[in-house]
Design a protein around this nucleic acid. Sequence first.
DNA 1: TATCGTTTCGGAACACGGTTCCGTTTGCTC
DNA 2: GAGCAAACGGAACCGTGTTCCGAAACGATA
Lengths: 196, 196
Amino acid sequence: MNDGDGGAGSTAPRKRSDARRNERTLLDAAAAVFVTSGVEAPVRDIAARAGVGVATIYRHFPTRADLIIAVYRHQVEACAEAGPALLESSATPHAALERWVNLFVDFLVTKHGLAAVLRSDDPGFGALHAYFIDRLLPVCARLLEAAATAGEIRADVDAYELMRGVGNLCIGADNDPRYDARRLVELVIAGLRVRR
Amino acid sequence: MNDGDGGAGSTAPRKRSDARRNERTLLDAAAAVFVTSGVEAPVRDIAARAGVGVATIYRHFPTRADLIIAVYRHQVEACAEAGPALLESSATPHAALERWVNLFVDFLVTKHGLAAVLRSDDPGFGALHAYFIDRLLPVCARLLEAAATAGEIRADVDAYELMRGVGNLCIGADNDPRYDARRLVELVIAGLRVRR
DNA sequence: TATCGTTTCGGAACACGGTTCCGTTTGCTC
DNA sequence: GAGCAAACGGAACCGTGTTCCGAAACGATA
């Protein structure tokens, strides 16, 4: 949470320089390994890539979830911020919702194995699940609400359920040419529409 | 495939009695353990429950997928056979499709962890994936085709993609009270309908 | 029923990945 | 430069899947 150099200037003891350097190195290494081997790549691989010992990973990122969060934080933030922007720039709330969901799906399917781990009941990934929910659920809820208010979609859809469902649909969407998650998600979005 | 007592009387050397007994015992034990601990329960747990050594499991079921298949074969068969029956007994092909998909979903969500393993890219589960596809895909395709012919749904939906999507939606549907896979699947089915 | 060859068994051993521990090193402060 | 705390690295530990091999059980034969 606190990287040691910014902060509110309160009780942050500023980390040692090698610690900060390693943290950065680890993030880069993890990002690289995630691209080639997926987010479930062995910890040792990431450590080797970064040229550090495995314990250093655990020291900086107590759970694997923390590491994944740190690696993708920027992109998740961008996705979260895109919500309101899309709502403003789109012709209709439904269009905004659709575009936002596509953004989310594109993010998930390009990160090998991320969707699979997002819903994992493994307590080790609880933090990851929580982060995504905390950050994106309100955005999704806002879009849903706007579309429902505009009478474009059913009012009985729960944002959590939708996000969870979309996340699930993205699982394994890489490495299977016969399966296109985007099409299925599109089907769900179509199912949301009120029948006229 | 061949349990050693039936067969075409060709080259089946009839297995030893203890082997047959253990196979049955293992199936029962696995079924029991799957109910309480899910299909990803440790091999040792299943062996212990059956009162046999771990090697005995591997001897009878070379991969975990083979064991899972054997345990659920009856139910999968029943699901497959329900397809044509529903098509005949339902008012419309679309109704039959909906009911069949619900059957499939009910099956998946009541088997802890099965959906998660069904789509797994782990080669060890390839046989499981293949079995489900082999057995159920034609049934699903038939229902889709009938509904499409009747003009009730889009004609551009691929059966594989639908099954895969439905399977994905069922992942983790147990142990999360906020997530109801049935509702999401319903949304997909609704999305299939042609807009009038 | 006693013997023997073969099948099957059981558990130890191995492989592999996550996680923790501890002696050593490094950076910071004085 | 000395002292101290933070941080490090890699060995060790643990749980799980998988394989190996000596022992036991089976069933045919005499």
